[in-house]
Amino acid sequence: MTEAISLSGAAASRGGAPVWSGVDLGIARGEFVAVLGPNGAGKSTFLDVALGLLPLSAGGVSVLGATPRAARARIGYLPQRRSFDASTRVRGVDVVRLGLDGARWGLPLPAALSGSARAARAKVAEVVELVGASAYAERPIGSLSGGEQQRLLIGQALVRDPEMLLLDEPLDSLDLPNQAAVAALVQRICRTQGVTVVLVAHDVNPILGYLDRVVYFAGGHGVEGPPREVIRADVLSELYGSPIEVVETRSGRLIVVGTPDAGGHSGDCGGHDHAADERQAERPVAEREPAG
């Protein structure tokens, strides 16, 4: 079976400025992979390449054994976002349903008249059940919490039975218990549905226990491998081109110290350079990076 995503000698640039180059990596099907790196290192650029939204400036890319554009229909994508605001008067099930047939022209037929509409409704209900959102899927999505919204949005990305999920910072803006719950949900989907999951994350710690592999972008390059083989002092020092320390706490958390752009405890990736878990619980996100 072909790989889910493979890059060979790949380079990407945005607006003429190179983001990363010389990247070789292969993500096998069915894996749960996190994409890590400091702000602006090219995590979202990697997703754009995989989605076919941004052509490579050099090298080759293959997604699910095809070109990114050809594979697009087999991918469920969850963009980075802020949440729906409170005045959004649209039900959760409607948002999930849009993922199924929202791009189709015309008006949907009422379920009473059309078999395909009944099938669509059943499919939506099945996915809502899968992400554990049945209790609140009928409520306006603007009135739900961030974690509830995120579950419904993952449901929306899943509703077309994709072979791969690309999730751009789905844990961002969630509190710690919800980060762990959503990470567990994503891993369960990955295992039980056989879906490859590529998840861009700000902080590896909430998902560390669930991951098969990480891709780490920094300093204009990218490396991949099992989490504990990549998030290591020697590997990251070479990637950043400056001395980096990785500290493991007694609870198993990885803390990356000395990244060039990590002033104070502003959010970098691969861990936090402050060890206070309580403080992190209070402020799950330090800052949001612009796309790219």
């Binding site: 989605l51 939204l53 697009r72 994508y77 969850l78 963009p79 976002r81 959004t88 649209v90 409607d94 948002v95 849009l98 993922g99 047939d101 929202g102 791009a103 189709r104 022209w105 015309g106 008006l107 949907p108 949005l153 929306q156 990305a157």
Partner: peptide
Amino acid sequence: AALARPLFYASVDGAVARAGG
């Protein structure tokens, strides 16, 4: 009526709609 469904999609969820073609 012809535009209704994609228009609803784009109105509620612009970024995902755009990514979905």
